[in-house]
Structures are given as structure tokens and as C-alpha cells.
């Protein structure tokens, strides 16, 4: 079982990200990384569900809008046409590296990812999310540094395998790093195991090194 034990996770999502996920106001790429972290972290899942409860309480107090006259009958017809209810997807703890929300975008587990080389042995795969924010998987060879970069907006990085360290500390499986535009960081993958992460950004990264900056338009990062 590759899933991290919950109590190994030390870097969690912020309350405002969890609330915005619950309210449904985040771009799709951010919904994806939040859903992926929640798949691994019961502490944040419980917090997100308590924000859902706030939404439920608001709905309860919502002024009512008048329904069409045949609304109930139409809905029952829709139900009868829909046939048997959905069966829940089996959720036995598996041996997947990628949590299910990411597998849904990749079309499979890690072996189905179509990597592109981006230099220094680092590989990435853009995921097909709607909207302006971007989501990509990163494969960083053990012991390798990702080029020094800052960014204009918010960048979240979720570790799926291996670990990396930077000025903010050590990030292992299930940990998520929240980096705003102030942070200029050089994450270094730990020795021993290649590091696989999901990274989402709401603005293009700007690299400090010359080479990566030139490559940026082609890499779409």
C-alpha cells in the first residue's frame, strides 16, 4: 500500500483553500489538488466537510424560489428513466501511486502518464484542466534541484511519492506546499527515491535562471 499514513502528513491545506473548495469557487486545477490532498488526509477531509456543513446551513435558510407547476412529476419521470441507481465505486485501499482524482485526468496510474522532458532529467505532464490555472505532474530525479523559481500567483505542490526540501522545510507523500508570489524557492528532491508531485499555478511561473526562462513559452509552465 503506497498511501501515506495520515499522521505522516505535516503540511496541510489552509482554511481558506478548504472553504473555497467547499463553496465551489476555485478554478478546476485547484479543485484537483485539493481533492487529491483530501484523498490522502482525513484531517483536511473532515475540515472540508465541516465547511460543507456551513453551505448546508446556508441552503436551509435560503429564500425559496417557486418551482414550475409539474416540477415534482417531471423529476419523478427523470428518475424512472434513469433506471437503477449508481453503484458506488470500489474504494479498497489500493496500490496506486496517484490518488483517484488525478487518475481520472491521466486515464490511469503513473504508468499511463505521458511525460515530457524539461531538462536536467526533470519531466512533466500537463493535465487537461479547464480554466486559466494550470495543473501538471512533475517527476524530479532523486537528488535533483528544480530550477530556482518564483511565481506571480499562488502555487500549490502536493507530493505523491518521494520527498523534496526547500526553505519551507521537508515535504513527503501527502504534504502540500503553499507558495505565494513572495517565495523564491529551489526545491531539491531527496536522495534515494525520485520525487513525483502534482503542482498547480494560477499564473505562469517566472524562472530566475536564463535557460528555463527561454524554455518557458514551450513548456507552458
Amino acid at each position: 500500500m503506497t498511501k501515506p499514513m495520515n499522521n505522516d502528513i505535516t503540511h496541510h491545506l489552509s482554511p481558506q483553500l478548504l472553504m473555497a473548495y467547499s463553496a465551489g469557487t476555485l478554478p478546476e486545477a485547484f479543485d484537483l489538488i485539493v481533492a487529491s490532498h483530501l484523498s490522502l488526509c482525513d484531517q483536511c477531509r473532515a475540515e472540508a466537510e465541516s465547511y460543507d456543513a456551513v453551505g448546508g446551513a446556508l441552503l436551509e435558510d435560503e429564500p425559496t424560489a417557486e418551482m414550475a407547476e409539474d416540477s415534482l412529476a417531471a423529476t419523478l419521470r427523470m428518475i424512472r428513466m434513469g433506471g437503477e441507481p449508481d453503484e458506488p465505486a470500489p474504494a479498497r485501499p489500493g496500490t496506486h501511486v496517484l490518488p483517484r482524482p488525478i487518475r481520472d485526468y491521466v486515464g490511469g496510474d503513473l504508468d499511463a502518464v505521458r511525460w515530457q522532458n524539461v531538462g536536467r532529467g526533470v519531466r512533466q505532464a500537463l493535465l487537461p484542466v479547464n480554466g486559466d490555472a494550470r495543473a501538471r505532474l512533475l517527476h524530479i530525479p532523486a537528488g535533483t534541484a528544480v530550477p530556482d523559481h518564483g511565481h506571480q500567483g499562488l502555487e500549490l505542490t502536493l507530493v505523491l511519492r518521494g520527498a523534496f526540501s526547500d526553505t519551507d522545510g521537508r515535504f513527503g507523500p501527502g504534504d502540500v506546499e503553499i507558495a505565494d508570489q513572495e517565495i523564491e524557492h529551489t526545491p531539491v528532491a531527496e536522495e534515494g527515491e525520485d520525487c513525483i508531485c502534482l503542482a498547480v499555478t494560477d499564473a505562469p511561473l517566472r524562472f530566475s535562471g536564463l535557460m528555463p526562462r527561454l524554455a518557458q513559452p514551450f513548456l507552458k509552465i
Binding site: S22, G24, A35, E49, L59, A89, A91, N130
Partner: peptide
């Protein structure tokens, strides 16, 4: 109410914002 809210929210994301809604892995 909470459950209905989450279904309505997801429908809103799908129908009004035309985005997918990634959800955490199910624990049925």
C-alpha cells in the same frame, strides 16, 4: 441539507462554470 448543498454546488460548477469538479476518493 449539507448533502443537498454539495450536490447543488457541483451541479452549479458543471452547468454554470462549465468546469469539472474533482472530488476526493470515495469512502463508501
Amino acid at each position: 441539507s449539507t448533502w443537498v448543498f454539495t450536490i447543488a454546488r457541483n451541479r452549479r460548477i458543471d452547468a454554470l462554470r462549465r468546469q469539472r469538479r474533482p472530488e476526493p476518493e470515495d469512502l463508501p
